[in-house]
């Protein structure tokens, strides 16, 4: 059950991340949920990499990490600039411009 155990753990983490994105309203916490989903995908990549016995899965996980770093920089910059103009980080209040 080597592979399945890791895949089940990755699934649990992915579902927690998805539920976070769906349920929470603080945009920073929502963003952390996205990070958790990326990590779950990385765990699955590494489990499959070991199952097949080649390192391509590890390289994929590596690139996911690099892209996640870039994504976090831009995402947090958006959150900061939204906070500056609206004084809120709640995803419900991002439509304040309409009112």
């Amino acid at each position: 059950m080597t592979v399945s155990a890791y895949l089940l753990l990755a699934s649990v983490l992915f579902v927690i991340g998805t539920a976070t994105v769906l349920l929470r309203r603080n945009s920073i916490i929502v963003f952390m949920g996205i990070e958790l989903m990326l990590n779950a995908a990385n765990l699955a990549f590494l489990a499959f990499s070991r199952m097949w016995g080649n390192l391509d899965g590890q390289l994929a996980a590596f690139f996911v990490m690099v892209v996640a770093a870039a994504e976090v920089v831009v995402g947090l910059a958006i959150i900061v600039s939204l906070f500056r103009t609206r004084r809120t980080v709640s995803v419900d209040d991002e439509n304040l411009m309409r009112h």
Partner: peptide, 11 residues
């Protein structure tokens, strides 16, 4: 820790 256990110490 799990990554190291999965034979990926670098990652």
């Amino acid at each position: 820790f799990l990554y190291v256990g999965l034979e990926a110490p670098f990652l």
